[in-house]
Simulated assay, not measured.
Amino acid sequence: MNLQEHLITSTLLAVSLYPRQPLAAALVIAGGVLVDLDHLALYISRTGDWSISGALHYNRYRHRFPQPGDSRPRYGSLRSRLHHPLIVLPPLWALAQRLPWVRPLAAGVTLHLLLDHIALPFVWNIYLRAGGRCVRCGSRRKVSVYLRPDDQHQQWQWTVLCQRCAYHTKPLRSRQSVKASVRD
């Protein structure tokens, strides 16, 4: 999810949980949005660029296919350990049991991680249907599930690609060819 979606959903949760407590509502919103500062920290550590606009620009182009003459680097995922629910949520909620003011913050972080991981069952289904192999070259090395456009319908679809095929190929041929290669 993007920053705007996290802000909207966190605000809705904050208003519904704490309608008359503005400080608690602000903590829910902060927890739901500020977890993504790890993306900025990883971007800075990988590029050396401290500009927020540079990070936002990178986030817009990193999933697109390289165009002719495009030599911009792609650094892969910008997710740190802060986006692993099993690492973050148990200690955070344990702390929230001792410190009541941490509860709204924990609620915001929980919502953020839930929204970031809600598509995982669907992603695993796509991965398993492809047999853990890249649908283009058949490789099992560093495959991931990507949302990519096809070139005929200009529609976005989920597909399993290795890192080499994900960043160095043109859009998918068509929906039928992807479905056929996933079944094989």
Rank of each mutant, 00 (worst) to 15 (best):
M1I: 05
N2R: 07
L3Y: 11
E5N: 11
H6V: 01
T9H: 13
T9E: 14
T11Q: 14
L12C: 14
L12G: 12
L12E: 15
V15N: 09
V15F: 07
V15D: 12
S16I: 08
Q21E: 15
Q21D: 15
L23V: 15
A24H: 15
V28G: 01
V28Q: 02
I29V: 13
G31E: 01
G31I: 03
L37W: 08
D38G: 09
A41R: 13
Y43H: 08
S45V: 15
D49N: 14
W50N: 11
W50T: 11
I52K: 02
H57N: 12
H57W: 07
H57T: 10
N59F: 11
R60D: 11
Y61N: 00
H63C: 08
P68Y: 01
G69C: 00
R72A: 07
R72H: 04
R72N: 04
R72L: 04
G76Q: 06
S77I: 12
R79T: 13
P85K: 06
L86N: 06
V88W: 02
V88S: 06
P90F: 01
P91A: 03
A94L: 09
L95N: 10
A96D: 00
W101S: 05
A106Y: 00
A107T: 01
H112D: 02
H112P: 02
H112Y: 02
L113Q: 00
L114T: 14
L114G: 13
L115Y: 09
D116P: 07
H117P: 04
H117G: 07
I118N: 07
I118V: 12
A119S: 11
P121F: 04
W124M: 15
W124G: 08
N125T: 09
Y127L: 13
A130K: 00
G131Y: 00
G131H: 01
G132E: 08
V135E: 10
S139A: 07
K142H: 11
K142D: 14
L147M: 14
R148S: 09
P149K: 11
D150T: 07
D151W: 07
Q152G: 12
L161H: 06
K170V: 09
P171K: 05
L172T: 05
S174E: 09
R175V: 14
Q176E: 14
Q176K: 10
Q176D: 09
S177G: 03
V178S: 04
K179I: 03
K179S: 08
